[in-house]
Computed example of a mutant assay.
Amino acid sequence: MTDALTTETPDAEKLASLKQLTLVTYILYALSVFTGLTAIVAIIINYVKREDAAGTVYESHFTWQIRTFWWSLLWAVIGWVLVWVLVGIPILIAAGIWAIYRLVKGFIYWNDGKPMDVK
């Protein structure tokens, strides 16, 4: 009976730790709107802890966050390059709204304990 308890506890602890870490990364991405640097910290965490999240509900959240980061970065660069011809401003606004949508949706799914649909 002791073995059953010890084998279940690490899984529960691992899930609780991953849940907290996933929240931290969502917060870091949200703070990046003001600082920018926190997104770099969050993407590093995502890549370093991605293997630990494999096979859990949080694996999809890590994938969601990683894709959000890279696509946001791409559209931000395109927007900044095109800002000189005035096309970049709408691109930057759209990219910002899209990133906020992704963060809010991810947080809601995290709060409900649901995986992200990242097919």
Rank of each mutant, 00 (worst) to 15 (best):
F107D: 09
P90S: 04
T56H: 05
Y109E: 14
W84V: 09
Y26A: 02
T68R: 02
T68L: 06
L21R: 07
Y101D: 04
T6N: 13
K14Y: 14
F34S: 05
K49T: 03
I97L: 14
A4S: 14
T7C: 11
A95D: 06
T35N: 02
I93S: 05
L37D: 02
H61A: 09
T56R: 05
Q20G: 10
E51I: 11
I45E: 03
L103K: 02
M1W: 11
D52W: 14
I44Q: 08
V41K: 14
P115E: 02
I27S: 04
N111E: 10
K49I: 05
S32F: 02
V41P: 13
L74G: 01
Y47T: 06
L103V: 06
W71L: 07
P90T: 01
T22M: 03
S72M: 02
K49R: 08
A42V: 10
G79F: 04
G55Q: 11
L92P: 05
V33L: 13
A53T: 10
W70Q: 05
V57E: 01
N46G: 05
V104E: 10
I40H: 05
T22N: 01
T56D: 06
R67I: 02
I43G: 04
W110R: 12
L74W: 04
L21A: 09
K14A: 15
I40C: 04
Y58S: 09
V57Y: 03
K19G: 11
A76C: 03
F107K: 09
W64N: 15
A95C: 07
G36D: 00
Q20R: 15
L73P: 00
D11R: 15
V87Q: 06
V118C: 14
Y26C: 01
I44Y: 11
I91N: 01
V33I: 12
Y29Q: 08
Y26Q: 00
I40E: 03
G79R: 02
I27G: 01
T7D: 15
I45G: 01
K114V: 11
Q20P: 06
F69M: 00
A30P: 03
I93L: 11
K105W: 13
S32M: 05
R67C: 02
A4F: 14
G36E: 01
F69T: 03
T7H: 14
E51D: 12
L5A: 12
I40K: 04
H61P: 10
L73M: 01
E51K: 13
Y29C: 06
G88C: 03
D52F: 13
A12Q: 15
A39V: 06
T22P: 04
T56Q: 06
A76F: 07
W70S: 02
D52H: 15
Y29H: 10
L23H: 03
L5H: 15
